[in-house]
Protein backbone atom coordinates (compact mmCIF):
# COMPACT_ATOMS: atom_id res chain seq x y z
CA UNK A 1 0.00 0.00 0.00
CA UNK A 2 1.47 3.30 -0.91
CA UNK A 3 2.12 5.95 1.68
CA UNK A 4 -0.43 8.37 0.37
CA UNK A 5 -3.23 5.84 0.47
CA UNK A 6 -2.26 4.75 3.97
CA UNK A 7 -2.21 8.35 5.12
CA UNK A 8 -5.60 8.88 3.61
CA UNK A 9 -7.05 5.87 5.41
CA UNK A 10 -5.58 6.96 8.73
CA UNK A 11 -6.93 10.46 8.23
CA UNK A 12 -10.33 9.12 7.25
CA UNK A 13 -10.55 6.80 10.23
CA UNK A 14 -9.54 9.60 12.60
CA UNK A 15 -12.22 11.82 11.13
CA UNK A 16 -14.82 9.06 11.13
CA UNK A 17 -14.22 7.37 14.44
CA UNK A 18 -11.80 9.07 16.73
CA UNK A 19 -11.90 12.69 15.64
CA UNK A 20 -14.16 14.54 18.05
CA UNK A 21 -13.37 12.28 21.00
CA UNK A 22 -9.61 12.43 20.51
CA UNK A 23 -9.85 16.18 20.21
CA UNK A 24 -11.85 16.56 23.39
CA UNK A 25 -9.40 14.43 25.35
CA UNK A 26 -6.29 16.13 24.06
CA UNK A 27 -7.60 19.56 24.96
CA UNK A 28 -9.61 19.07 28.09
CA UNK A 29 -9.85 22.78 28.77
CA UNK A 30 -11.71 23.54 25.57
CA UNK A 31 -15.40 24.23 26.12
CA UNK A 32 -17.63 23.95 23.08
CA UNK A 33 -20.46 26.46 23.16
CA UNK A 34 -23.55 26.12 21.01
CA UNK A 35 -24.59 29.52 19.64
CA UNK A 36 -27.27 30.44 17.14
CA UNK A 37 -25.88 33.28 15.04
CA UNK A 38 -29.32 34.19 13.69
CA UNK A 39 -30.97 36.06 16.54
CA UNK A 40 -30.02 39.75 16.56
CA UNK A 41 -29.04 41.56 18.69
CA UNK A 42 -28.12 38.57 20.86
CA UNK A 43 -26.38 36.43 18.30
CA UNK A 44 -25.72 37.18 14.65
CA UNK A 45 -23.14 37.00 11.89
CA UNK A 46 -21.54 40.28 10.81
CA UNK A 47 -20.65 41.16 7.22
CA UNK A 48 -17.20 39.64 7.65
CA UNK A 49 -18.73 36.29 8.66
CA UNK A 50 -17.84 36.68 12.35
CA UNK A 51 -20.21 35.92 15.21
CA UNK A 52 -21.27 38.92 17.23
CA UNK A 53 -23.98 39.97 19.67
CA UNK A 54 -24.85 40.05 23.34
CA UNK A 55 -24.75 36.26 23.78
CA UNK A 56 -21.37 36.08 22.08
CA UNK A 57 -19.84 38.92 24.13
CA UNK A 58 -21.18 37.46 27.37
CA UNK A 59 -19.86 34.02 26.41
CA UNK A 60 -16.43 35.45 25.66
CA UNK A 61 -16.41 37.38 28.94
CA UNK A 62 -17.42 34.28 30.92
CA UNK A 63 -14.76 32.15 29.25
CA UNK A 64 -12.12 34.78 29.97
CA UNK A 65 -13.32 34.89 33.59
CA UNK A 66 -13.19 31.09 33.85
CA UNK A 67 -9.80 31.06 32.07
CA UNK A 68 -10.91 28.38 29.62
CA UNK A 69 -10.71 28.36 25.88
CA UNK A 70 -14.14 28.43 24.26
CA UNK A 71 -15.03 27.30 20.78
CA UNK A 72 -18.27 28.47 19.21
CA UNK A 73 -20.37 25.92 17.38
CA UNK A 74 -23.18 27.41 15.33
CA UNK A 75 -26.40 25.40 15.47
CA UNK A 76 -30.11 25.76 14.78
CA UNK A 77 -32.06 26.50 17.94
CA UNK A 78 -34.10 23.29 17.85
CA UNK A 79 -30.85 21.32 17.59
CA UNK A 80 -29.21 22.79 20.70
CA UNK A 81 -30.47 20.43 23.41
CA UNK A 82 -30.04 17.28 21.27
CA UNK A 83 -26.48 18.42 20.40
CA UNK A 84 -25.77 19.07 24.06
CA UNK A 85 -27.05 15.69 25.20
CA UNK A 86 -25.21 13.86 22.43
CA UNK A 87 -21.99 15.62 23.55
CA UNK A 88 -21.40 17.57 20.36
CA UNK A 89 -21.29 20.71 22.49
CA UNK A 90 -20.74 21.31 26.22
CA UNK A 91 -22.94 24.33 26.85
CA UNK A 92 -25.61 26.38 25.12
CA UNK A 93 -25.30 30.16 25.11
CA UNK A 94 -28.23 30.98 22.88
CA UNK A 95 -30.69 33.15 24.80
CA UNK A 96 -32.31 29.95 26.00
CA UNK A 97 -34.90 30.60 28.68
CA UNK A 98 -34.71 28.56 31.86
CA UNK A 99 -38.01 26.67 31.94
CA UNK A 100 -39.23 23.78 34.05
CA UNK A 101 -39.92 21.81 30.90
CA UNK A 102 -36.34 22.16 29.61
CA UNK A 103 -34.98 21.40 33.09
CA UNK A 104 -36.27 17.87 32.61
CA UNK A 105 -33.73 17.42 29.81
CA UNK A 106 -30.84 19.71 30.76
CA UNK A 107 -29.33 21.70 33.61
CA UNK A 108 -29.18 25.50 33.67
CA UNK A 109 -26.88 28.11 35.16
CA UNK A 110 -28.30 31.21 36.80
CA UNK A 111 -29.92 33.62 34.37
CA UNK A 112 -27.80 36.12 32.46
CA UNK A 113 -30.67 38.24 31.21
CA UNK A 114 -34.45 38.38 31.13
CA UNK A 115 -36.78 40.07 28.69
CA UNK A 116 -40.51 39.64 28.03
CA UNK A 117 -42.42 38.57 24.90
CA UNK A 118 -45.18 40.14 22.84
CA UNK A 119 -47.21 39.84 19.64
CA UNK A 120 -46.10 41.73 16.52
CA UNK A 121 -48.61 42.51 13.76
CA UNK A 122 -48.88 44.80 10.76
CA UNK A 123 -50.03 48.33 11.50
CA UNK A 124 -53.75 48.61 10.87
CA UNK A 125 -54.30 44.94 11.57
CA UNK A 126 -57.41 44.38 13.65
CA UNK A 127 -56.03 41.17 15.10
CA UNK A 128 -56.54 40.82 18.83
CA UNK A 129 -54.23 38.76 20.96
CA UNK A 130 -57.03 36.68 22.45
CA UNK A 131 -58.16 33.13 21.88
CA UNK A 132 -61.14 34.38 19.88
CA UNK A 133 -59.14 36.98 17.98
CA UNK A 134 -56.54 34.46 16.89
CA UNK A 135 -58.96 31.77 15.76
CA UNK A 136 -57.77 30.54 12.36
CA UNK A 137 -55.08 33.22 12.18
CA UNK A 138 -51.60 32.22 11.15
CA UNK A 139 -49.13 32.87 13.95
CA UNK A 140 -45.42 32.52 13.22
CA UNK A 141 -43.03 31.29 15.92
CA UNK A 142 -39.53 29.92 16.04
CA UNK A 143 -39.67 26.16 16.55
CA UNK A 144 -38.90 24.76 19.99
CA UNK A 145 -38.86 28.18 21.69
CA UNK A 146 -40.86 29.33 24.72
CA UNK A 147 -43.02 31.29 22.28
CA UNK A 148 -43.81 28.11 20.36
CA UNK A 149 -44.98 26.44 23.60
CA UNK A 150 -46.85 29.52 24.78
CA UNK A 151 -48.96 29.87 21.62
CA UNK A 152 -49.43 26.12 21.36
CA UNK A 153 -50.93 25.89 24.82
CA UNK A 154 -52.80 29.18 25.09
CA UNK A 155 -54.10 29.80 21.59
CA UNK A 156 -55.00 26.34 20.36
CA UNK A 157 -57.45 27.82 17.86
CA UNK A 158 -54.64 29.64 16.03
CA UNK A 159 -52.87 28.12 13.06
CA UNK A 160 -49.30 27.92 14.34
CA UNK A 161 -46.56 28.10 11.72
CA UNK A 162 -43.18 26.96 13.00
CA UNK A 163 -39.86 28.13 11.58
CA UNK A 164 -36.32 26.99 12.23
CA UNK A 165 -34.93 30.52 12.43
CA UNK A 166 -36.32 33.79 13.71
CA UNK A 167 -35.39 35.65 10.51
CA UNK A 168 -37.58 33.26 8.53
CA UNK A 169 -40.50 34.33 10.72
CA UNK A 170 -39.66 37.96 9.90
CA UNK A 171 -39.55 37.23 6.16
CA UNK A 172 -43.00 35.65 6.19
CA UNK A 173 -44.44 38.25 8.56
CA UNK A 174 -43.25 40.98 6.19
CA UNK A 175 -44.64 39.23 3.12
CA UNK A 176 -47.97 38.60 4.83
CA UNK A 177 -47.78 34.81 4.93
CA UNK A 178 -48.39 34.93 8.67
CA UNK A 179 -50.79 37.32 10.38
CA UNK A 180 -48.77 37.72 13.56
CA UNK A 181 -45.64 36.58 15.31
CA UNK A 182 -44.92 36.01 18.99
CA UNK A 183 -41.37 36.57 20.11
CA UNK A 184 -38.98 38.21 22.49
CA UNK A 185 -39.55 41.98 22.56
CA UNK A 186 -35.89 42.90 22.17
CA UNK A 187 -35.37 40.47 19.31
CA UNK A 188 -38.50 41.88 17.65
CA UNK A 189 -37.43 45.46 18.21
CA UNK A 190 -33.86 45.15 16.95
CA UNK A 191 -34.23 42.31 14.47
CA UNK A 192 -37.42 43.49 12.80
CA UNK A 193 -39.27 46.64 13.86
CA UNK A 194 -36.19 48.85 13.55
CA UNK A 195 -35.26 47.44 10.14
CA UNK A 196 -36.76 48.64 6.81
CA UNK A 197 -38.51 45.26 6.52
CA UNK A 198 -40.54 45.88 9.68
CA UNK A 199 -41.36 49.54 9.36
CA UNK A 200 -45.12 49.01 9.03
CA UNK A 201 -45.37 46.66 11.97
CA UNK A 202 -45.87 47.14 15.69
CA UNK A 203 -46.46 45.41 19.02
CA UNK A 204 -49.99 44.57 20.15
CA UNK A 205 -51.59 42.95 23.15
CA UNK A 206 -50.19 42.43 26.59
CA UNK A 207 -46.56 41.93 27.59
CA UNK A 208 -46.00 38.30 28.51
CA UNK A 209 -43.57 37.01 31.14
CA UNK A 210 -45.47 34.25 32.96
CA UNK A 211 -42.68 31.96 34.29
CA UNK A 212 -44.84 28.94 33.49
CA UNK A 213 -44.16 29.50 29.78
CA UNK A 214 -41.45 32.12 29.63
CA UNK A 215 -39.26 30.76 32.39
CA UNK A 216 -36.90 32.53 34.70
CA UNK A 217 -34.70 34.38 32.25
CA UNK A 218 -32.10 33.21 29.77
CA UNK A 219 -29.47 30.88 31.17
CA UNK A 220 -26.68 28.70 29.89
CA UNK A 221 -27.81 25.11 29.34
CA UNK A 222 -25.53 22.27 30.37
CA UNK A 223 -25.74 18.51 30.44
CA UNK A 224 -27.28 16.97 33.54
CA UNK A 225 -24.59 16.11 36.04
CA UNK A 226 -22.08 18.58 34.64
CA UNK A 227 -22.04 20.34 38.01
CA UNK A 228 -18.48 21.62 38.06
CA UNK A 229 -18.96 23.43 34.75
CA UNK A 230 -22.22 24.84 36.04
CA UNK A 231 -20.56 26.08 39.21
CA UNK A 232 -17.79 27.67 37.13
CA UNK A 233 -20.32 29.43 34.93
CA UNK A 234 -22.36 30.62 37.92
CA UNK A 235 -19.27 32.03 39.60
CA UNK A 236 -18.23 33.70 36.34
CA UNK A 237 -21.69 35.24 35.87
CA UNK A 238 -21.58 36.61 39.41
CA UNK A 239 -18.03 37.88 38.84
CA UNK A 240 -18.76 39.81 35.63
CA UNK A 241 -21.91 41.19 37.24
CA UNK A 242 -19.78 42.45 40.14
CA UNK A 243 -16.75 43.75 38.28
CA UNK A 244 -18.62 45.87 35.76
CA UNK A 245 -17.84 43.83 32.66
CA UNK A 246 -21.48 42.80 32.32
CA UNK A 247 -22.58 46.43 32.50
CA UNK A 248 -20.04 47.43 29.88
CA UNK A 249 -21.30 44.73 27.48
CA UNK A 250 -24.98 45.37 28.07
CA UNK A 251 -24.55 49.12 27.52
CA UNK A 252 -23.28 48.41 24.01
CA UNK A 253 -26.61 46.80 23.12
CA UNK A 254 -29.30 48.14 25.43
CA UNK A 255 -30.21 51.44 27.07
CA UNK A 256 -32.02 49.69 29.92
CA UNK A 257 -31.11 46.95 32.38
CA UNK A 258 -31.48 43.73 30.45
CA UNK A 259 -30.50 41.59 33.45
CA UNK A 260 -33.36 42.27 35.77
CA UNK A 261 -35.78 43.85 33.40
CA UNK A 262 -39.16 43.31 34.90
CA UNK A 263 -41.63 42.94 32.06
CA UNK A 264 -43.10 46.39 32.47
CA UNK A 265 -39.73 48.18 32.60
CA UNK A 266 -38.40 46.38 29.59
CA UNK A 267 -41.59 46.96 27.67
CA UNK A 268 -41.49 50.67 28.49
CA UNK A 269 -37.82 50.83 27.52
CA UNK A 270 -38.48 49.13 24.22
CA UNK A 271 -41.46 51.35 23.49
CA UNK A 272 -39.39 54.45 24.27
CA UNK A 273 -36.66 53.20 22.00
CA UNK A 274 -39.23 52.65 19.28
CA UNK A 275 -40.57 56.18 19.71
CA UNK A 276 -37.05 57.59 19.38
CA UNK A 277 -36.33 55.82 16.11
Amino acid sequence: MNVFLRGLIVAASVVLFGGPAAFANAQAKKVRLGVEGAYPPFSEIDKGGQLKGFDIDIANALCAQMKVECVFVQLAFDGMIPALNSRKIDAVVASMSITDERKKAVEFTDKYYKTPARFVVKQGSTLEATAAGLKGKRVGVQRSTIHDRFVGENFKSADIVRYTKQDEVFLDLASGRVDAAVLDMIAAQVGFLKTPQGKNFHFVGPVYDDPKYFGYGAGIALRKGDNSLREDFNKAIAAIRANGIYKKIQDVYFDFDVYGAAAATAAAAVTNAAAKK
Partner: peptide, 11 residues
Protein backbone atom coordinates in the same frame (compact mmCIF):
# COMPACT_ATOMS: atom_id res chain seq x y z
CA UNK B 1 -40.24 14.28 13.23
CA UNK B 2 -38.78 17.76 13.75
CA UNK B 3 -41.75 18.68 15.89
CA UNK B 4 -41.34 15.55 18.01
CA UNK B 5 -37.61 16.26 18.31
CA UNK B 6 -38.26 19.80 19.48
CA UNK B 7 -40.85 18.68 22.04
CA UNK B 8 -39.08 15.66 23.49
CA UNK B 9 -35.38 16.32 22.70
CA UNK B 10 -35.20 12.73 21.47
CA UNK B 11 -33.76 13.10 17.96
Amino acid sequence: AREMNSRTYLP
